[in-house]
Design a protein around this nucleic acid. Sequence first.
DNA 1: CGGTAGGTTGACCACGGTCAAGTTGGGTGG
DNA 2: CCACCCAACTTGACCGTGGTCAACCTACCG
Lengths: 269, 269
Amino acid sequence: MQLAPHDAAADSHAPSRAAHKIIMKRMEREPIRIEALKVACSSCNLRELCLPVGLSDDDLDHLDQLVGSRRPVKRGDTLFHAGDRFESLYAVRTGFFKTCVSADDGRDQVTGFQMAGELLGLDGISTDRHACDAVALEDSQVCQIPYSQLEKLSRESTPLQHQFHKIMSREIVRDHGVMLLLGSMRAEERLAAFLLNLTQRLQARGFSASSLVLRMTREEIGSYLGLKLETVSRTFSKFQDEGLLEVKQRDIRVLDESGLRRLVNGPAC
Amino acid sequence: MQLAPHDAAADSHAPSRAAHKIIMKRMEREPIRIEALKVACSSCNLRELCLPVGLSDDDLDHLDQLVGSRRPVKRGDTLFHAGDRFESLYAVRTGFFKTCVSADDGRDQVTGFQMAGELLGLDGISTDRHACDAVALEDSQVCQIPYSQLEKLSRESTPLQHQFHKIMSREIVRDHGVMLLLGSMRAEERLAAFLLNLTQRLQARGFSASSLVLRMTREEIGSYLGLKLETVSRTFSKFQDEGLLEVKQRDIRVLDESGLRRLVNGPAC
DNA sequence: CGGTAGGTTGACCACGGTCAAGTTGGGTGG
DNA sequence: CCACCCAACTTGACCGTGGTCAACCTACCG
């Protein structure tokens, strides 16, 4: 199932930064009452990507009742910090996040980038404390899902339980894919795999498969991919020289998707 | 909580390879009827590490009913392959496993090593197919847990549901730690972190914190750590030269644990 | 219009990969 | 029981990818 390409709520990737800024300015001028931000899961355009997948109308109503109001998170703001008490999961409604863990000595590692319909906070369940930071990379909105209530509801709704388990399992599978990337791919393959993953996810949300705006810095990409920012930058330039991409700072146009794909699936062939 | 150090069932790490062989020979001479292999969760020495954590006696009985008999898996045998239909989770009862994912071009990556009390197969939930191979690194036994029944029971038992979610979440947190390792640590730090993690887990199972037998090859360690086997071997030798370890093939004795710890938490200090 | 964060590019170098030769030790068959 | 075999491991020499350091550029913001 694919979402309508120009749904307003999920459109945050499409407009230029300038347009985006205008929208945000408008929101500041005309503050909306929190209650107005509440959008029912049942009418959410992300319901086919998010927690509600497979739920009956009845269950959906129950889910609606426990999902709190949409909460805005400004670009650069932290949704939760490592060590914070874990109480809720968050579904990204609009915008873009990164999660990162840090070692004792300060080094840190971006563990993922989350876009609309993806869940944040699953790491907190294990110890009742969040194990990573979640930071908004653009002005965003999240739906807060109190965890204890989700557990309760998923005892009553088999499809919800099942979907929730699937989402956790999918995160595990994704992580294993990242390990494969970090453990055995070279710089070019990593960046190609990263771009293909991003475009594929954007496409699933109704956006173009060939043009995207990176919401993260070269350093954040590098951290995620286990590379230094200079290497990321150089590799972008290389891809551009080879005609695979057009790179203008954070605006990327994919010119040769199959070329990227060839890079990932064995540079020997 | 710590398990008794010399419980027979969990003792597979302690005996030398020779002793282990003798035990295995004996098992072959005197085959035990499958039914006899069934060990109730309620009387399992791993119940404080495994799925039963926090369960009431009543819930434990229910869990006992759904957990199938112990199933032996020979060293080198595969418990499940990537692509196999997912039906059950498996709890390692004795022995040692690795899980690995493989890319289209054949490269593969060890994503984890599992010992007694740890769960295998969580990756299968997301797509109803296993996403990795699970291979026994020594003669092992697993408890088979039919997933649909586990879901059912965890709708009826809040503590079971909670514990199951914690286990999945813990796997996610672990994976993020591995990403940190793969993304930002150098060879020595990786190996030191790996050894500390192993000894810590063995210790939680009642074994010595300072001497261990590696059940995996240098190549498997390398795959897990994103290094080549030669680098693993060289780094072991280096640690030995520096007096951190005593290395005799797969027998490792940790001589300076805090030295290892210092390596991991910032080599600068 | 200047300041600053983010991005690009170059020169150099080191960590770890590659290739190759040699060693060790457990398992097998005569 | 010993000899042989092979997989696993070790070590050395060399090399390449990507890290480091530094200078410079670009876009955005106050």
